[in-house]
Simulated assay, not measured.
Amino acid sequence: MEIDIAEALRKKGLKVTPQRIAVIKTMIKGGHFSGEQIYSELKKTEPSISLSTVYNALETLKDAGIIRSFEAGGKTWYEMRMEPHVNVYCEDIGDIVDVDLDLSTLEKNLMEKGIEPRNLSVIVYAECSKMRKG
C-alpha cells in the first residue's frame, strides 16, 4: 500500500511532522500495535523520540480518522485498518487476529435505533491455540 503520507496528513488538516510520518511508516506494514511497541521500534532510528510524543501522535492520528484504536487485554491497540472487521484477542497467546465478517447487519440495526457508528469495532476474546491455519 503505497501512499503519500504527507499528503494524507494535509488532507486531514494536520501539520506534517517527522514524528507523525514515523508512526505511520511503522504502522503501514499492517497489524496491531501498542504505543510501547511503536515507541520501541521508533527508538531504534529516532533515539531522541519520547514515549509521550508517540502517544500524542497516535491520539492525533486517531482523532483525524487515519488510524483507529481499541482496548483488549488491558492495553490500547492501534491499527490502520479502518473498514469494519472483528478483532479477535487471543487470551492464551496474546495475539490479535483480524476476521473479516459482514458487519452490515449490525451497523443497520444500530442505525435503526438512532445510533450512528463512527468507528465500528468488534472485539472478541477467545482461546486461539487450537486455531485452524489457512
Rank of each mutant, 00 (worst) to 15 (best):
T45P: 01
K15W: 02
I93W: 03
M82G: 12
I123E: 07
D98R: 14
E116Q: 05
H85C: 09
Q19W: 02
E116N: 13
A8W: 02
I24S: 01
P117E: 01
I66N: 00
K25Y: 03
S129C: 07
T45C: 05
N87P: 05
V97L: 09
E91R: 07
R132A: 12
P117S: 05
I38V: 14
S52M: 09
I66V: 12
L103W: 06
I49L: 07
F33S: 06
T105K: 10
L42T: 06
E59D: 15
T26M: 04
K75R: 13
G30W: 00
I28Y: 07
M111F: 00
V23L: 04
G30V: 01
V97S: 09
M111S: 15
A72Y: 09
R118T: 15
E112R: 05
M80A: 06
R10D: 02
L9T: 07
A22M: 11
L58R: 09
E107T: 08
S40L: 10
L120I: 02
E2R: 07
I38W: 03
I5M: 08
K11I: 03
L110K: 00
G65H: 02
I67P: 08
F33R: 03
E83T: 12
K29I: 01
S40T: 14
N56M: 05
L106I: 15
A126Y: 11
E2N: 11
M131T: 08
I3A: 08
A8I: 07
L110W: 03
A72W: 07
K25F: 04
K29H: 11
T45L: 04
S48H: 15
A8G: 01
E46Q: 10
A8Q: 06
P117G: 03
K29N: 06
I3N: 05
S121K: 13
G114H: 01
F70C: 08
T17K: 03
I21W: 00
I3H: 07
G13N: 00
W77L: 10
N56R: 14
I123A: 00
F33N: 03
R132D: 14
L9M: 05
I21F: 00
K11V: 10
T60F: 00
G31H: 02
K12D: 05
E112M: 15
